[in-house]
Design a protein around this nucleic acid. Structure first.
Length: 256
DNA sequence: ATGCCCGGAACGTCCGGA
């Protein structure tokens, strides 16, 4: 079972690249982030024609997440519990082939002296509480998405320059570690413990991609049952090199 | 010290992204 995550930065602009990647990589599940469209404007027909079931949590212009699966999506949950006043479309969850899978678009949190940073940290605490509840269900779990956290300096092309950034701040990394301490496993790091310079995001600015100035911020966090089944993990840099690319590229894992 | 590059909304130029 192949499970992947990809921040597409507008599903409308990325539709040709998305359809190509589905045909080529053939994931059983793909978690999308930053679809940047209302649920009713999602390209349902084009995706379903490729043999995928679709669940969407959209909003106008910003954010938005979705789950695509080659098997039925069961018991879909829209939104992260813990704040009924939160209008931002950043979370969707469903069961696919017995695996509980979430698509997560965690807040960026910059600038750190604005209210965006405490919003990020509060969102991460809500995620921690919900992940703890999911882990108590004793079913395979995969929390997939754009976490907007570089877990360690080895995940950053210039750790000094990013030391004060919301993606690298101690508070963000501590909240990420709190997720791991629940019993979740960073799939990429589990399979590639010593890897340096394996990124999932390269900024559009400053020629970041040709210089390989990247960050690893897209993660697959697996519960114990899924981790026991973990066979392989990869980052597919191909889509980032295309014309009209997203600034993120897909991360995938294979469960036995 | 600041903008660089993108997409969306909208039609001038700003917001948000990371």
């Amino acid at each position: 079972m192949k499970i992947a995550t990809w921040n597409v930065n507008s599903v409308k602009m990325r539709l040709p690249a998305l359809l190509d990647w589905l045909d080529q990589a053939r994931p059983d599940v793909l978690a999308l982030q930053e679809i940047k469209c209302r649920t009713e404007d999602f390209p349902w027909m084009e995706i379903e024609a490729r043999g995928y079931a679709v669940a969407v949590q959209g909003q106008k212009a910003y954010n938005g997440v979705a789950l695509l699966a080659r098997a039925p999506l069961e018991a879909v949950r829209h939104g992260l519990p813990g704040d009924d006043g939160d209008e931002q479309a950043r979370y969707i969850e469903a069961t696919i082939l017995g695996v509980r899978v979430a698509s997560i678009y965690l807040p960026n949190g910059n600038p750190t002296d604005s209210d965006k940073f405490p919003y990020k940290l509060a969102w991460m605490e809500r995620l921690r509480r919900h992940a703890a509840a999911l882990l108590r269900q004793d079913q395979p779990l995969a929390l997939c998405g754009d976490y907007n956290v570089c877990p360690s300096d080895t995940d950053v092309y210039d750790p000094v320059a990013f030391a004060g950034d919301a993606l690298c701040r101690a508070e963000s990394r501590g909240a990420f570690r709190a997720l791991l301490h629940l019993g979740l496993t960073d799939a990429f790091r589990a399979r590639h413990p010593e890897a340096v310079g394996r990124y999932s995001f390269w900024d559009y600015q400053n020629r970041a991609w040709p210089q390989d100035h990247g960050l690893r911020i897209d993660h697959l966090l697996l519960g114990p049952e899924a981790t026991d089944r973990l066979a392989e993990v990869g980052i597919d840099r191909g889509p980032r090199g295309r014309d009209k690319a997203s600034d993120h590229t897909p991360v995938w894992c294979e469960l036995l």
